[in-house]
């Protein structure tokens, strides 16, 4: 009896604290405050539906999430974390893929990082071998170092980012023919140190997170630098190893910071609007997040890599 009472008291206390937090959060502009998440799912493991340090994330038009982890498994989940299907990349001894993108046709583009190539899969996991770009290590056109990410513009051209051997972005025609390239290793505008991820906006501008230079660069489809912003730091508005980004189409860009363990929201000009996540293992806390994706309802799915899970946030 007394135990029940104590337990109830505990619950009451927790509830009242939660209510307090909710009220105080109400004063702020963002709905998801530190320590909270809209949804958390995922468990460490190598069996079906479990995650082992997932490193890349993509979302398709049906709001299905594609994840790839350190076992080189590509697994598909719905936005509630229900496992739908999965498959493995052909070879992963050298290393696992670290970039995923859905193209306009709904196919999955895989940056097979340590095999210097881009793979193309149907949503059901069928590898379209004739669509593969690259596979050769080198500096030349169509050759790659560590491929980090791929994106497709409105004309069907592919852009492939890489680092390791030579930091650059190469552009290919829809048939996989090399068109042009830009960038080199360095810290000057237009140069890269590990262009970890890219997104393309409605005007075919390519947004690149330049991870080890701690900044974002925006290019037009011919590689001309349009904008550059971001500086190293952990304060609001600064970046530390930005690894992924997402655009909301309403004038905002979300940046996932591997080093700062958070997601920041910026205007397109780089003015900070909000931030979500701190370092840790609790709800609303992140440990070296690698990727983010935004679904059709505007919710942000954060790949909390070293916690082997996905967190959903609204902000």
């Amino acid at each position: 009896m007394i135990g029940c009472l104590l337990q109830n008291l505990n619950q009451l206390l927790v509830a009242s604290i939660a209510v307090g937090i909710t009220f105080s959060a109400g004063c702020l502009s963002r709905p998801q405050q530190e320590g909270t998440a809209d949804l958390i799912w995922g468990q460490s493991g190598i069996t079906e539906g479990r995650l082992q340090k997932p490193r890349a994330l993509a979302i398709d038009a049906n709001d299905e999430l594609y994840l790839v982890d350190m076992t080189a498994r590509i697994q598909v989940f719905d936005t509630e974390g229900t496992y739908l299907r999965g498959w493995k990349t052909p070879i992963s001894k050298n290393g696992r893929p670290s970039g995923l993108t859905i193209d306009r046709a709904g196919r999955l583009l895989v940056a097979d990082t340590h095999y210097y190539r881009m793979l193309v899969y149907t949503p059901d996991g069928e590898l379209l071998e004739d669509q593969t770009i690259g596979g050769t290590l080198g500096h030349g056109p169509g050759e790659f170092g560590f491929v980090t990410d791929v994106c497709e513009d409105s004309q069907g051209n592919f852009y492939v980012a890489e680092y390791g051997d030579f930091d650059r972005v190469q552009k290919f025609s829809p048939d996989g023919e090399f068109i042009l390239q830009w960038g080199s290793p360095g810290a000057d505008p237009g140069q890269f140190r590990r262009p970890q991820n890219m997104v393309i906006d409605s005007q075919d501008r390519i947004w690149v997170v330049d991870a080890c230079n701690h900044r974002l660069q925006v290019f037009d489809s011919s590689g001309k630098l349009l904008s550059i912003w971001g500086e190293e730091g952990s304060e609001l508005g600064k970046l530390y190893y930005p690894y992924d980004l997402a655009l909301d189409g309403q004038g905002h860009v979300y940046v996932c910071e591997y080093g700062n363990h958070r997601v920041q929201k910026f205007t397109l000009e780089g003015k900070p609007v909000g931030s979500w996540g701190t370092h840790g293992k609790g709800p609303g806390q992140l440990h070296n997040p690698w990727a983010i994706a935004r679904d059709s309802l505007g919710r942000i799915h954060v790949l909390d890599s070293n916690n082997h899970r996905v967190q959903r946030a609204i902000f």
Partner: peptide
């Protein structure tokens, strides 16, 4: 190491 490229550096 991640193939030849990993060992180059």
């Amino acid at each position: 190491s991640h193939g030849r490229l990993g060992s180059q550096e």
